[in-house]
């Protein structure tokens, strides 16, 4: 026989008791600093790409440097001129890179803001929202009130009532203008292929316009990102149609692609699509997700 008693039994039947309380809410309360996201190492392809970029820029810079030095040996004025040209050229490249980074940073603010709002994290949401509002002309009159907002619901209500409503109106207006233009274009342009091309281009411009309305200045990468987000997020149906345009209808009606980007609506007219695209982009750019 074993040492411990075997049969299970109910031992005591005490007086009525309140429900157990493990203090669970307290134990699981979020810690102040959330740990950083995972490994931030460089993957092999990223390393290789960075290497290629450094080689291209660096070697060409060295090359140009040598050339400038050569020119100085020929004649000082020639040297200065070449130097000026080189500095201007590299400066423009640098400016473009900075602008790309700024555009991406703007999108990052929007993402941080949204994430903080979704988490209900007032401090982080306030920081992101104020940062965003500070850069937006439409939000200037409201800044003092925003700074004083005591909690998240108030902050959101203020934003929805003031700047966000104005931005939504502007986005719709931009969409309407684009819609009129594409209506006109489809009437004038003779070939359906050109037609599709125009609409694709106008759609792309519309995305950027709406982004600017929302205080974002997306560069090339940023626009791409925004476009894809518009594709995946709201109004995926209409957006997919505009962006991918009629020439690739065959691709979009493929069930596999459709399962990823959503089915392309076949009967929608271009103008209506522009309106939808404006709305979808506004949704993607909005720092507070519309309810």
């Amino acid at each position: 026989m074993s040492e411990t008693p075997r049969g299970p039994r109910i031992l005591t039947d005490d007086a009525p008791a309140p429900r157990l309380d493990f203090g669970w809410d307290v134990t699981v309360a979020p810690v102040a600093v959330t740990p950083p996201a995972g490994r931030r190492g460089w993957s092999a392809p990223a390393l290789a790409a960075a290497g290629v970029a450094v080689l291209l820029l660096g070697l060409s810079a060295i090359d140009v440097g040598g050339y400038v030095a050569d020119q100085f040996t020929r004649a000082p004025w020639l040297g200065w001129l070449t130097l000026g040209v080189a500095v201007a050229g590299y400066g423009l490249i640098l400016a473009a890179m900075l602008r790309e980074l700024r555009g991406l940073a703007g999108l990052g603010t929007v993402e941080r803001g949204r994430a903080a709002v979704a988490r209900g994290d007032f401090a982080a949401a306030r920081a992101a929202l104020l940062d965003w509002a500070g850069r937006l002309p439409a939000a200037q009159p409201m800044l003092p009130a925003l700074r004083k907002a005591p909690d998240l619901p108030t902050l959101l209500a203020l934003l929805e009532a003031g700047p966000l409503a104005a931005l939504d109106r502007q986005a719709v207006a931009a969409g309407r203008a684009a819609a009129l233009q594409s209506l006109a274009a489809t009437a004038i342009v003779p070939s359906p292929a050109l037609d599709g091309l125009f609409i694709a281009w106008r759609g792309l411009r519309l995305v950027r316009e709406v982004a600017v309305i929302h205080g974002l200045r997306p560069g090339l990468l940023g626009t791409l990102k925004l476009l894809r987000r518009t594709l995946f997020e709201a109004g995926a149906v209409a957006a997919a149609d505009v962006a991918i345009n009629a020439a690739v209808t065959a691709v979009t009606t493929n069930p596999l692609v459709a399962s990823v980007v959503g089915d392309a609506a076949s009967g929608a007219v271009a103008a209506r699509r522009m309106l939808l695209l404006a709305r979808a982009t506004a949704r993607a750019c909005r720092i507070v997700e519309p309810r």
């Binding site: 008693p5 049969g7 299970p8 031992l11 005591t12 007086a15 009525p16 157990l20």
Partner: peptide, 17 residues
């Protein structure tokens, strides 16, 4: 130890080996 659903009384249970 838990509170029984029926009657709401606290009970200790030895579940056996």
């Amino acid at each position: 130890r838990g509170v029984l659903l029926e009657g709401g009384r606290s009970a200790r249970i030895y579940p056996g080996e």
